[in-house]
Computed example of a mutant assay.
Amino acid sequence: MAKKVVVGMSGGVDSSVAAYLLKEQGYEVIGVTMQIWQDDAQENPDGCCGISAVDDARRVADALGIRYYVMNFKKEFRENVIDYFIREYKNGRTPNPCIACNRYVKWESLLQRSLEIGADYIATGHYARIVQLPNGRYAIKNSVTAAKDQTYALYNLTQDQLTRTLMPVGEFSKDEIREIAKKAGLPVAAKPDSQEICFVPDNNYAGFIERETGEKEKKGNFVDLDGNVLGEHQGISHYTIGQRKGLGISLGKRTFVTEIRTGTNEVVLGDNEDLFGKKVYANNINFMGIEDISDEIRGVAKIRYNHSGDTCRIKRIGEDEIEITFDKPQRAATPGQAAVIYSEDGIVLGGGTIFPLK
C-alpha cells in the first residue's frame, strides 16, 4: 500500500513540482493549501497562501489527478506569526516571520492535521534536503543550489517533524524545477517567485502594525553613540539595525541605525564601522544535527537569510543561550533575526534568536 503524503501547495512552481515528483515516486499525494488570511481585503495576489494561490494550486492538482483541499489555519497564523511579528517590532527587534510560520504553522499545525487524516508524511517545495546523520539525528542539509537554498528558515524544526517530512525539490536547481514543470505540463511552470512577506505586500511594516493594533506609534529621539540628541524618529518599528535609507534625517554623512533602545524609545545612529563585531548571542535554541553543545565547537554561522555565512566558534553560556564568535567581524547582527549554525559540509546543527548581551 502506497505511503500517503500531504503536500503543502502554495500555488507556486516549487510546491507544484514537489507534488509531481512524489506522485512519480509512487506516493499517494494529497494537495493542501493553508488558508491564513485574516480577511479577503488583506489578500496578496502574489502571496503564497492567498486566494489566487488556491486557484493555481487547484489547477495543478487537477492536472496531476490528485485530491486537493483548503485547510483553515487563520487562528494558528494569527497567534504564531502576525502577533509575534507585531510584538517583536514593538520591542525593537526585527523578526523573521517565515521561520515562525515554518515551525508553528506549516509544520506543527499542518503535520498534526495531516496525521489526523491518515497521512504518513508532509512535504513542501523548499530548497533543502533532509538527512539522517551517523549519530541517529535528522537534520536539514543545504540544497544542491546555493542560489535558492532555504535551510536558514528551517533550522527550528523538531526531530519528530523532520522524520515525517519530505523535501524532494532540494535535489534540483531552480532552472531544473521549471523545466520539470514545463515537461509535466503544470500550469504554473513560468509563474514568478513571491518576494515580500506574504501578509505585508507593500513592505510597509510600520503601517501594517499601526493598522493591526489601531495604535499610533510614539515618536522619539535619534541619538548618537554618546546619547546626544540628533533629531526625531517616527517610532521604533520603522527602523532596523544597519538601516541607512528612509531615516528622515540628514547629518551630512552616511549614517546607519546601530541600536534600538526600547527603554528610552531612542534610535541610535552611527557610522558603518560601528555595525561590525565578532560576537553574536542567541537564545531560544533549537538543536538539530547535534543534541547539545558541551564543549566549544567550530562551525559556520549565518546571521540573516541572505548572509553567506562565516566560520566561527560556538559555546553554551547559559541554560538556553549560546555565544558565537566569528573569525572575522560581521556586519549588523540584528536582534530578532536567527543565528543558524552549520557544519562545514552544510548540515544544520541548530540555531537560535539573536539578542543583545549588555
Rank of each mutant, 00 (worst) to 15 (best):
Q38I: 08
D39H: 15
A41Y: 14
A41D: 13
Q42P: 01
E43S: 15
N44P: 09
P45N: 05
D46N: 15
D46F: 15
G47N: 11
C48A: 13
C49I: 01
G50V: 07
G50E: 07
G50Y: 11
I51Q: 12
A53P: 11
V54W: 09
V54P: 05
V54D: 04
D55F: 13
D55I: 12
D55S: 12
D56E: 10
A57C: 03
R58C: 03
R59P: 01
V60L: 05
V60Q: 06
A61Y: 05
D62M: 07
A63N: 10
A63S: 13
I66S: 11
I66G: 06
R67F: 06
Y68V: 04
Y69I: 10
V70K: 09
V70L: 08
N72V: 04
K74L: 04
K74M: 11
K75Q: 13
F77P: 09
R78V: 04
R78G: 00
E79P: 10
E79C: 11
V81S: 10
I82L: 13
I82D: 11
I82K: 13
Y84H: 14
I86S: 12
I86V: 15
R87A: 15
R87C: 07
Y89M: 13
K90F: 03
K90P: 01
G92A: 10
R93P: 00
T94M: 11
T94A: 12
P95W: 13
P95T: 06
P95A: 09
N96R: 05
A100Y: 15
A100T: 02
C101V: 05
C101K: 11
N102V: 05
Y104S: 11
W107Y: 13
E108G: 01
E108S: 12
S109I: 00
L111N: 04
L111A: 04
Q112M: 12
R113G: 07
S114A: 15
L115S: 07
E116W: 06
I117D: 08
G118R: 12
A119W: 13
A119E: 06
A119S: 11
Y121N: 05
Y121F: 15
I122T: 08
A123F: 03
T124L: 12
T124I: 00
G125E: 04
H126I: 01
A128K: 10
A128Y: 09
A128L: 03
A128H: 09
L133N: 02
P134A: 01
N135H: 04
G136T: 06
G136P: 01
Y138F: 12
I140M: 10
I140Y: 06
I140C: 00
I140W: 09
K141S: 01
S143C: 03
V144K: 09
V144E: 04
T145G: 09
T145E: 12
A146E: 06
A146Q: 07
A147M: 02
A147H: 02
K148V: 05
K148N: 08
Y152F: 12
A153D: 12
A153R: 05
L154N: 06
L154H: 07
Y155P: 02
N156Q: 11
N156G: 03
N156I: 01
L157N: 08
T158E: 09
D160T: 08
D160R: 07
D160E: 13
T163R: 14
T163N: 00
T163C: 00
R164L: 04
R164C: 00
L166S: 02
V169W: 09
G170P: 04
G170Y: 10
E171A: 12
F172C: 04
